[in-house]
Structure formats: C-alpha cells, structure tokens
Amino acid sequence: MPVVSYIEAIKTAMEEEMERDERVFVLGEDVGKRGGVFRATEGLYERFGAKRVIDTPLAESAIAGVGIGAAMYGMIPIAEMQFADFILPAVNQIISEAAKIRYRSNNDWTCPITIRAPYGGGVHGALYHSQSIEAIFANQPGLKIVMPSSPRDAKGLLKAAIRDPDPVLYFEHKKAYRLLKEEIDNNEEVIEIGKANLIQEGTDITVITYGLCVHYAKEAAKELAEEQGIEVNLLDLRTIYPLDQEAIINAVNKTGKVLLITEDNKEGSIISEVSAIIGEHCLFELDAPIKRLAGPNVPAMPYAPTLEKAFMVNQDKIKQAMLELALF
C-alpha cells in the first residue's frame, strides 16, 4: 500500500475525479503551469491541459463567480482560493449566490461547485496566511463545509465534495500538507459528508475537534494513555457544517466530560455551536463544565515565532487541557 501525504491525497482525488468525469475542471491562481503555490495541482495541467486546469486572473470573486456560472451550466468546477485568508472578496459570491441558488430558484437551478482553500497556522504565515475562517460560512444553510484531518479523509472528503450536487467548501490545513502521511488502502473511498468520525473510543473524557487539531489530539491522547492511563474518546467532526448532532451528543454522553478544540479564535467559532448543541441536549449527562481550547481573541496569528507559538493550539496545550478535564 502506498504511503500518501495529505497534499498528495488532495491532488489524487482531483486527478481521479477529472479522469472519471469530463465535466470536472480546476480553476484558480497559479493552478496551471505552476501546479499551485503548494503544488496541490501538480501535474494536472500537463495531464488534462489548459482548458481543464485554468490559470485565472488574480481576482477571487471571479474565481468563485465564474465557477458558479459554469456549475449552473452543468460543469463541476473545483475552484481554488490560494489561501483561505483571501476568500473574503468572494464571500458575496459564496453566501449570496452559491449557497442560495437551489433555494431561491425553488430547486430549478443547482450549483455543484467545490471551493478549496488552504487554511491554518504554524507555517510562519503571519496574519494573512494563517487564519481559520470557516466560522464565517458556518451558519449558511445551502453550504456544506468539510475540513479533513488525515490523508485518507482528505481524499475521501474531496471526492465526496466534487460529487456533491450542492456547493461545498473544502478547507485543507497547510501544515498538514506534508506533515501527515498514511497508507491509503481503498483508492475509491468516498467519505460521506455530514458524518463525524469517532477516531478512538475512550471512557474518561471526550474530545471533539476537526482538521489538524485531530492529529494533535491523537498524539496527546496517546501520551496521556501511556503516562496516566487516561482513555480519550476522540470525535473528528469532519463536516463542520451542517454538524453531525447525533454523533456529538453520543460522544459527549459516553464520558460526561468534553473538551472542544479549534485553531480558530474562540468566540463565535465552530466549537461555540458544538457547545450550544451540548448545552441543549446533554446537560444532565455532564460531569464537568464544557471546556474549550482555541486560539486567543486577537485578530490573527503574528509572524514572530514566539508570538506564533503562543497563538497556535498544539499538542502540549491539548494534553494539558485534557488532563485538567480528566482530573475535574
């Protein structure tokens, strides 16, 4: 079985889907000859040509908007935002248009677009190449948002996003690109959107997170199990909008203690909604207050390594939070 990195999994998913369906095409900045600034589309231009791997002008609203138009025609675009931080000029196209096309036309028109955007910090990207901006989109019915935590999920969720009849935002963590590698045994796996994934079962505390934080949480849980015998029940949200309520409730009820983790700022984040769900449904099962670990409430991640490290959620911070909760 081949060992595949997170970014290779993304590229392979696009390659296989483009091979499978002629309507699938890629558009974005530097996705063609350059193969993407992170190399996520490497080789696609050579394989599928300039008509299906389109280098666009530097204009994010057009990347989304032109993709949306092509999707209405019947194509299946994969639009790449070079950095999630730069998606903001396209927000009107994504929220006012893509999210509402099916609803506003009473099911007459559809918009099967996938918008990929690299997010996340810890890569010396400073304020505007490090952000987690998923919360902006996570109260927009009509949109789906997935955030893979492993190469296997990166591939399976991207295939699902491309095949989905509705618009899907796909946020991929930049630091995960080459950090995470694993064997992928089932090449054709499509991972269902809308379902969370129980990474490991445990009886002491529940941890709910998504994206790269799942990896950190797994590592921290391994250490805690070895050092302290604490067993962590770890749920990966996978789809952060709409949330898998049932999985969240089940995971919380299993241990009665829950730690929620995001790399984003804490206020109004994805885990804020998760904690509201827990508050509504699990109050009498809780043995401790809901605990949240998130980025601090400063505008974004600074460049200097000391400040970046202080901002970033990491394995040590997660381990500490897990321990505190277990000892509560």
Partner: peptide
C-alpha cells in the same frame, strides 16, 4: 453578481 456567472457560462 450575475456578471461572473454569465462569464462562467461563456467559459463552459
């Protein structure tokens, strides 16, 4: 917002 959409149709 319809201008980029029409351009997307033209592209398709």
């Amino acid at each position: 917002t319809q201008v980029p959409h029409a351009v997307g149709v033209g592209l398709a």
